[in-house]
Design a protein around this nucleic acid. Structure first.
Lengths: 138, 138
DNA sequence: GTAAGAGTGAAAATCTTTCGCATCTTGATC
DNA sequence: GATCAAGATGCGAAAGATTTTCACTCTTAC
């Protein structure tokens, strides 16, 4: 139940937070921009401002409930933290997003960081391309 | 000489373009935001507007002279196109940027894209961490 | 039940990047 | 060199995403 997760994050259980977490969990799309979440709230007749959506998503991010990603094209997208780090394949035509994990790449990154005396905190790998569907469309 | 490169890009040789390219080539920093370039111009008493800096950098990007990168933290950074694709290691404390190329990773990416029927157009790999210097500072 | 501190909505503010437009330059041509 | 059209520039305004401010409301601890 959402309430539990919010409480564990050290946040008060309020209607906007419960609603937003519910949307992220049940909306079907794993990757949503703040705007997407806001529109979904509107369509559910919820009186929640866009500023609150940003605030709540940022808090959730801080609490580790969601991850924020900056792909090309302006808006950030948020996704529920699935526990396991993963990278993304993004279709530049239709926006489709595929997640993947590749141990070989993770290991090489660790090695490269070590070779340069860097202590890895995070990383972001995004491969932009055209998905199978879009290739066939023309 | 800068003039040649600009001409070859199919652009008129104008003072702002020559100046901006000169800064990118001689400023010491390989990665600069539009704002950085603008400030450098100001400090050289050049009367060039920020809008022009953006316009020129965008044109240079289209002509393949520079690459634009979107790291975390708002601004885009531009770098001279070194001909060879490479990825980045970014220090989240001091902003230091190290470039690297790793064939193993490139190959894995190609394989992953193929497995998912994606036709790769581009990719961005950024590893965020703390560099050796910053680790020692505290 | 109540006070204190959190949380919220709406509007204003920021920040980065782009646009509109009048004016000025460049490069090709006499 | 002078001429001219296409292309560039500068400036302020605009746009888009996100954050902050402020006055008000709600949650939680007691």
């Amino acid at each position: 139940m959402e309430n539990q997760q919010i409480k564990e994050a050290g946040l008060k259980v309020t209607a906007p937070r419960v609603k937003i977490l519910g949307i992220l969990e049940n909306c079907g799309k794993r990757h949503m921009s703040a705007e997407d979440v806001y529109k979904e709230l509107i369509s559910q007749d919820e009186e929640i401002g866009l500023a609150t959506v940003y605030r709540v998503l940022t808090q959730f991010e801080g609490a580790g409930l969601v991850c924020r990603r900056h792909f090309e094209g302006g808006q950030s997208v948020f996704e529920l933290n699935s526990g396991e780090h993963h990278d993304h394949l993004v279709c530049i035509k239709c926006g489709k997003i595929v997640e993947f994990v590749d141990l070989t790449i993770e290991k090489r990154q660790a090695k490269i960081a070590a070779d340069n005396a860097f202590q890895i905190e995070d990383h972001s790998l995004v491969v932009y391309g055209i998905c199978g569907d879009c290739q066939n469309k023309r």
